[in-house]
Design a protein around this nucleic acid. Structure first.
Lengths: 239, 239
DNA sequence: GTAATAGTGTCTGTGAGACACTATAAA
DNA sequence: TTTATAGTGTCTCACAGACACTATTAC
């Protein structure tokens, strides 16, 4: 019942790890290659310690800026939310570390070249990352993040965050197909997006594709955040 | 980039707090009255320190058993899942404490009388708890838990956890109405529940209500966990 | 009898899925 | 031309919501 002596608290360290996801040709995650032990040379999620005088939330924003090397102009367009906390006893071989994982969503942005202040960050396809070896329990974090995003695309407008400031309905459709790894009828997708208040709004501009086809209307994200009723993955289960 | 000295980590304490919810005449939460400062005499969520040799998850289960005083036979029927982590700087006036909040769902169970090993625990209506004063940032935790449960009743069969081992469709319907604080057409609710594979299964038994009415079929929870398509709260938004 | 609960049947409107079709661009 | 994309129209089926109706119990 919280009858403890503040001087006798167990020794913990608290870190944040950022699962920053984007859609390029594939669904991709930002990873850094570790320079020191443990897991030196192994790919890991960007992250670091929570400082004594900052909130966990602030630490996540700080690490997002510092470790990913995203430019200041790109940061406001990034969605960042708490994902889950990982607190198994042996997850860090050196000491007891509890880590709060955050999920970030961003449009595809170029990464700083190696040698800058930021870590040696890179975008790697999620499937490649999951097929390989990741430091600590970062694989679990990545899996949780992927499932969260897939689920959230069903009932929120978050895909517009992955699309960036200006996009066509074809772009948005492609994002859904890549993240869900599943085909979606384009005509029905268009109807659904356009029929949902606040999902997207037209900029009036048109954009021509390099691959041919008629010019497409360019949209920006709308003010809405929730889809009701939601879009659905898989053809309805049950039968 | 994780190039830190394990001996210099910032001093953190890590706790777990349990938001255990149930449905009685009202949607209720288990609270304990604090015996020591800070917040001595104030209502708080049950919780406590994560020990050095146990995972955060294990700590949550241990606190659920110890602090709530639930009998060993009732514990297996409790659903426990991680809710969110609270890590603001000043949330505990004594020192830096990061707390991992867990959401628990249980059928209504009698609480141990005061004086036992367990804390002075009590069920309090959520509305009452939110109208009053709670220790630390426990009000935020409670609000997050309530919203999570309301959302999960839409697309999971979790309501059966609140109903216990044997229940009628009337019981289940009542749980939805109380948690959502909203009326649901009983006939449509019945059709939906019975049409969803794995939601409930009949025990064959009948139960008569003390308030009159025909005997009702008694059900137990089914093996399914997800509702697809989901039940929906509010009449569809949008228009 | 009345009140309360259990349970069934039926109509309607919305919207998702399937898919045919036209239009406009690049190569 | 062919190929790829943009965009519209239409039919059908599933299902949620509304609600009328019967049945069986307590009081």
């Amino acid at each position: 019942m919280a009858s403890y002596d503040p001087a006798e608290f167990p020794p913990f360290a608290v870190t944040v790890d950022i699962v920053l996801l984007t859609v390029a040709d594939e669904f991709s995650v930002m990873l850094v290659r570790r320079g020191v032990d443990p897991f030196a040379g192994v790919l890991a999620l960007p992250g670091g310690f929570v400082l004594p005088d900052e909130s966990v939330e602030d630490a996540a924003h700080r690490e997002l800026a510092e470790e990913t090397g995203l430019s200041a102009s790109a940061l406001p367009g990034v969605h960042l939310e708490q994902l889950a906390t990982f607190g198994d006893v042996g997850r860090d071989p050196r000491m007891r570390v509890v880590s709060v994982a955050y999920l970030g969503l961003s449009r595809l942005t170029p990464l700083p070249t190696a040698g800058t202040d930021a870590a040696d960050a890179q975008w790697l396809p999620v499937s490649t990352a999951l097929a390989g070896h990741l430091a600590f329990d970062h694989r679990e974090m990545l899996e949780a993040a992927v499932e969260r995003v897939r689920a959230k695309l069903e009932y929120t407008t978050l895909a517009t965050t992955l699309a960036g400031e200006a996009f066509t309905l074809g772009d948005l459709h492609r994002i859904y197909e890549i993240v869900w790894n599943e085909e979606l009828d384009l005509a029905n997708f268009r109807r659904k997006v356009l029929a949902t208040d606040g999902f997207v709004e037209s900029t009036g501009a048109k954009r021509v594709s390099t691959a041919g086809g008629a010019p497409a209307t360019v949209y920006r994200r709308g003010s809405g955040t929730l889809l009701n009723p939601p879009l659905s993955r898989r053809p309805r289960a049950g039968h």
